[in-house]
Design a protein around this nucleic acid. Structure first.
Length: 483
DNA sequence: GACCCGGAAGGGAA
DNA sequence: GTTCCCTTCCGGGT
């Protein structure tokens, strides 16, 4: 039995269970992407129609309306689709068009709104084509959906929004902070959802149109209610107020606490392509189109009204060392996820500026490399290293009067500023046995060093920005600082 | 001037 | 109390 028929019969049996139905859709989804539409058989056309029905939650399309193979299907014009399926012909046409463009390897965004030539080129589809990042997908999430964004020519473009944990940025009333120039310009058409922003309206003048992979990959899913769209798109105006913006709700789901996650969420929503868009989705390369606007979105998300691109980019730079995001050299405002965002582990965090920066001040290069390898091994010290522990051994250090250790900030500063070769975190490696008395007692609690550097380490100095004192050979001996 | 870089110090939340 | 993830500031570079 051909795979298409098998899938159809499977789907009939599966329909009882929504969960399984979703699996079916996924299976068909992958099946469809593997072939150019012009290569589809009649059955495969039927499968695609069925898939569209499921994915976009549209009325089932009678199979006899498209009783043809893929080649014939690709010859149909938009009007033909509209004639056959007045209600959803436009959507089907767009969906097919995108598949054709993707498989042809020559996507021209202008065809989205025009009459595309569904020409077939014999190219092998990219393996990652139509693979939607799955990081935030969950079977019970249903609040994504099809967003119909009227373009300037009043035609519609289907935009994928489901399977992605809905990003609900926290944005204040438009009167605050975001200037109109930086916000997506809007012209509201009663009864129609908010328009996609025109690239020409962007303050940066960036070529947003080139962000075509975005729409291309993020194909249509389930319809979404206007209220949901309002929820999803913080810059979407209300119907009645024209260019005014809706104040946005705080939501339990707006927990984009991490910058990379926030950016990734924006990338999932074509509504934000004025701000950030995929440059090359296959390689997770993205481009910031409106640095100021993006910074302000991020600022609103974090309740930091003074956020700037300068600061945001500093945060991005902390991702470099953790191999989460890197700059695409030579291309301004262009960065790259170094791995699929879905693969970024919880433990793989973006910034360890204190621990690392202080190691850099006192460690040799090789020790820094070791540090990196340790950090990459999920905060455990690599087992391949021969280690010596001086865990539990107290070090008495006399702290000068200038350091008021009864103050927490002073202790923090001291702890943070201290560094020791081969040690990952002094702040975690030491704790005070008594904060109030001097001399100040640090007890090494987790300090482990590599065997080969024991001697060096013992004779090394513990340093901090204000202090410099030798680590005693006898770890129990008090050490006076001379700063 | 805009963007980019990384050090340094500190804030805030979990 | 500790740790993480930035935020803020800075000097310098392209």
């Amino acid at each position: 039995m051909p795979i298409a028929e098998r899938l159809i019969s499977l789907s009939i049996g599966f329909r009882a269970a929504r969960q399984v139905d979703m699996l079916f859709n996924e299976a068909v989804f992958h099946f469809i992407q593997a072939k150019h539409p012009q290569q589809w058989t009649k059955d495969e056309v039927a499968v695609w129609l069925r898939w569209c029905g499921e994915e976009y939650s549209i009325e089932a399309v009678p199979a006899d309306k498209f009783d043809m193979n893929g080649k014939a299907l690709c010859l149909l014009k938009r009007s033909d689709f509209m004639e056959r399926v007045p209600k959803n012909g436009d959507l089907l046409y767009n969906a097919l068009n995108k598949l054709v463009q993707k498989n042809s390897g020559a996507y021209d965004s202008s065809t989205t709104s025009g009459t595309p030539s569904l020409s077939y080129q014999n190219v092998t589809p990219s393996p990652s084509a139509f693979q939607i990042p799955q990081q935030f997908s969950s079977p019970d999430q249903t609040n994504g959906g099809l967003v119909l964004l009227p373009r300037s020519n009043a035609q519609t473009t289907a935009v994928y929004t489901t399977k992605v944990k809905p990003y609900v940025p926290i944005l204040p009333h438009p009167a605050n902070h975001i200037t109109k120039q930086e916000i997506l310009p809007v012209t509201t058409v009663p009864g129609i959802l908010s328009p996609a922003p025109s690239p020409s309206d962007t303050g940066s003048g960036s070529d947003v149109d080139s962000c075509t992979e975005y729409d291309d990959r993020l194909a249509c899913r389930n319809p979404m209610q206007p209220s949901q769209l309002n929820y999803m798109n913080p810059l979407r105006p209300t119907m009645a107020t024209g260019s005014e913006l809706v104040p946005f709700l705080r939501s339990k789901e707006s927990d984009c606490r991490l910058l990379w996650e926030f950016i990734y969420q924006l990338l999932q929503n074509p509504y934000y392509k004025e701000y950030v868009c995929w440059e090359k989705l296959d390689d997770f390369v993205f481009r910031i189109n409106n640095p100021t606007g993006l910074a302000q979105l991020w600022g609103h998300q974090k309740n930091r009204t003074n956020m700037t691109y300068e600061k945001l980019s500093r945060a991005l730079r902390y991702y470099y060392r953790m191999n989460i995001i890197k700059k695409v050299s030579g291309k301004r405002l262009t960065y790259k996820f170094m791995q699929p965002p879905a693969n970024i582990q919880k433990g793989q965090r973006g910034a360890k500026p204190h621990s690392r920066s202080h190691l850099l001040t006192t460690c040799k290069d090789e020790e820094v490399d070791d540090y990196d390898s340790e950090m990459r091994s999920d905060d455990t010290i690599s087992s391949e290293l021969s280690q010596t522990s001086i865990e539990g051994k107290p070090i008495k250090i006399e702290i000068p009067d200038s350091h008021d250790l009864s103050r927490r900030d002073s202790r923090d500063k001291l702890t943070r500023s201290m560094s020791y070769p081969g040690m990952r975190h002094l702040s975690s490696a030491c704790h005070s046995t008594d904060m109030s008395d001097q001399p100040f007692d640090f007890t090494m609690t987790t300090l482990k060093r590599k065997e080969k550097s024991v001697d060096d380490s013992v004779s090394s100095a513990i340093t901090c920005s204000q202090l410099s004192f030798p680590l005693p050979m006898d770890l129990n001996s008090p050490v006076s600082t001379n700063s």
